[in-house]
Amino acid sequence: MQKEPQINVLGEPLQPCSTDPLTGFFRDGSCNTCAEDHGSHTVCAVMTAEFLAYSKYVGNDLSTPMPAYSFPGLKPGDHWCLCAGRFLQAHDEGCAPLVNLHATHQSALDIVPLDVLNLYQTS
């Protein structure tokens, strides 16, 4: 798998998203992507209780630990490389989480417009 260039949505070098919990399609702590990443795990999101409940409701339970996959389960405040489509869906439903633009891969822009991401940027 060939990683795409590690550039964020601001045109700068991609910053890490989280190593605790370890996130990313490559589980390298960054929202790197490649052609095989069909979910586009490119948005560095800060989890909220509202978003975690929404994600579980639509069929992707991110809060329940799955030890078999070394997945601790997410809690509010955790940073996670979220699928760009799921982020846009949550935005449309009014429950999108905050976003770290410095750690959000430029490929997210193929799905989520920058003006939408800007609405949720963390300081």
Score class of each variant (00 low, 15 high):
residue 15 Q to C: 06
residue 114 L to V: 03
residue 57 Y to V: 02
residue 28 D to H: 13
residue 9 V to A: 00
residue 79 H to R: 15
residue 33 T to D: 05
residue 33 T to Q: 14
residue 89 Q to N: 08
residue 59 G to K: 08
residue 77 G to F: 12
residue 95 C to D: 02
residue 81 C to H: 02
residue 35 A to S: 12
residue 82 L to F: 10
residue 73 G to M: 09
residue 99 V to G: 03
residue 1 M to S: 12
residue 44 C to F: 07
residue 49 A to N: 03
residue 21 P to M: 12
residue 21 P to D: 07
residue 20 D to P: 09
residue 29 G to I: 04
residue 123 S to L: 10
residue 56 K to Y: 03
residue 60 N to K: 07
residue 80 W to C: 09
residue 76 P to E: 13
residue 3 K to W: 13
residue 7 I to V: 15
residue 27 R to H: 15
residue 50 E to C: 00
residue 65 P to K: 00
residue 72 P to F: 09
residue 3 K to T: 08
residue 90 A to S: 04
residue 4 E to F: 14
residue 120 Y to C: 04
residue 29 G to K: 07
residue 24 G to E: 15
residue 30 S to N: 03
residue 98 L to I: 08
residue 49 A to S: 13
residue 86 R to N: 09
residue 82 L to K: 06
residue 19 T to A: 11
residue 93 E to P: 03
residue 31 C to M: 11
residue 14 L to F: 03
residue 86 R to A: 09
residue 121 Q to W: 00
residue 38 H to K: 11
residue 88 L to F: 04
residue 94 G to E: 00
residue 1 M to A: 14
residue 105 H to D: 14
residue 12 E to A: 10
residue 101 L to D: 03
residue 13 P to S: 00
residue 91 H to E: 06
residue 41 H to M: 14
residue 58 V to L: 07
residue 88 L to I: 11
residue 20 D to W: 02
residue 68 A to V: 08
residue 38 H to M: 08
residue 6 Q to M: 05
residue 44 C to N: 04
residue 107 S to H: 13
residue 21 P to K: 12
residue 82 L to V: 10
residue 2 Q to D: 15
residue 117 L to M: 11
residue 18 S to H: 08
residue 120 Y to G: 01
residue 113 P to T: 10
residue 56 K to V: 04
residue 16 P to K: 09
residue 70 S to D: 14
residue 31 C to G: 00
residue 8 N to R: 02
residue 97 P to S: 07
residue 116 V to T: 12
residue 7 I to R: 11
residue 36 E to T: 05
residue 50 E to T: 14
residue 116 V to K: 01
residue 107 S to D: 15
residue 18 S to D: 09
residue 45 A to L: 00
residue 77 G to Q: 04
residue 75 K to W: 03
residue 102 H to A: 15
residue 121 Q to M: 09
residue 71 F to C: 00
residue 39 G to R: 10
residue 17 C to F: 03
residue 31 C to T: 01
residue 43 V to E: 02
residue 10 L to F: 01
residue 119 L to C: 05
residue 57 Y to L: 14
residue 55 S to W: 03
residue 116 V to M: 10
residue 65 P to N: 04
residue 114 L to C: 10
residue 101 L to V: 07
residue 6 Q to F: 11
residue 15 Q to K: 12
residue 5 P to T: 00
residue 70 S to Q: 13
residue 96 A to Y: 07
